[in-house]
Design a protein around this nucleic acid. Sequence first.
DNA 1: TCACAATAGTTGAACCTTCAACTATTTGGT
DNA 2: ACCAAATAGTTGAAGGTTCAACTATTGTGA
Lengths: 158, 158
Amino acid sequence: MAGKSTEPNWLSPSEMAAWRRYIVASRRLLDALDADLDSEDLSIADYEVLVLLSEAPDRRMRMSELAENGLVSRSRLSHRMKVMEKAGWVKRQNCEVDKRGQWAVMTPKGWQAIVKAAPIHLKSIRTRFIDVLSKGDQEAIAQAFNKIENNLRKEIIE
Amino acid sequence: MAGKSTEPNWLSPSEMAAWRRYIVASRRLLDALDADLDSEDLSIADYEVLVLLSEAPDRRMRMSELAENGLVSRSRLSHRMKVMEKAGWVKRQNCEVDKRGQWAVMTPKGWQAIVKAAPIHLKSIRTRFIDVLSKGDQEAIAQAFNKIENNLRKEIIE
DNA sequence: TCACAATAGTTGAACCTTCAACTATTTGGT
DNA sequence: ACCAAATAGTTGAAGGTTCAACTATTGTGA
């Protein structure tokens, strides 16, 4: 541990390359995926909420569980839910077991929306991500981001 | 090309793993990096604008060039600039050569802000990304995301 | 030179997200 | 049983982003 903690420990050129390419390409990629869903009037965020509900038993989930699995704040989900409810994709129901709670329930219309959007989004992921990469690339990414996530998770616990 | 175009071409488990880990870890990573800059009252977006300016000749750049290099819309940059100008980090100057144009100029205060924030952000990138990965991981990421970006770029031209 | 298209940049409105404060209910300790 | 703390969820305000419309200037071709 030589050197003052305030001295920047600059990235080497190859480290910088990895970081920069990751950041720049990721931003473009996400923008493209979002744009691909424009035709369905869905954002990626809303799409993901619908996917989570579609996979849940009875296509419903408690608000807080949905927020956690979707990696969004409760507040954000609450606001979003109001919009999605108005669009007719979901509705909310009181939870009998825990009277503080709410169920987020997917409606038939929500199901239709996701069934219609899924092939588009899937194709989008394929053409922009999966099909561009070799099997080896994919494995390397899975492994690398697994490490990154474990490392982040570790920090929360400490 | 067998099958109707509307039939989802589902991802295989290993493809899904690569995609999911990438998306989930990326979101967490970006959140963590943003949180690390909270102490400096900077968002990553603003930090990046300041870095671009700090590296430019005379620490100034035309608005449209700044927008393009920073991967943000002109409108967004314009709005952001107003806030950053109020914070004293940048100022705007008329461009004599092109009278439609504006220079975004970094102020000494802006320079100080970035000098102070850089070690923090760098350390953040190191501990959460670079140092977690092997040299091989880093190379694989650089290569993979290079492919992704080239593929995206290709599409724009077509 | 004139007219028309393209470019630089800004603006306001609509929309989305964050943050802190709030209500209501449940849990845990004594 | 009681009370304090924790949890579920919502809300409004403040701030950020997007979108389309707008002004001003520059480039281009006849």
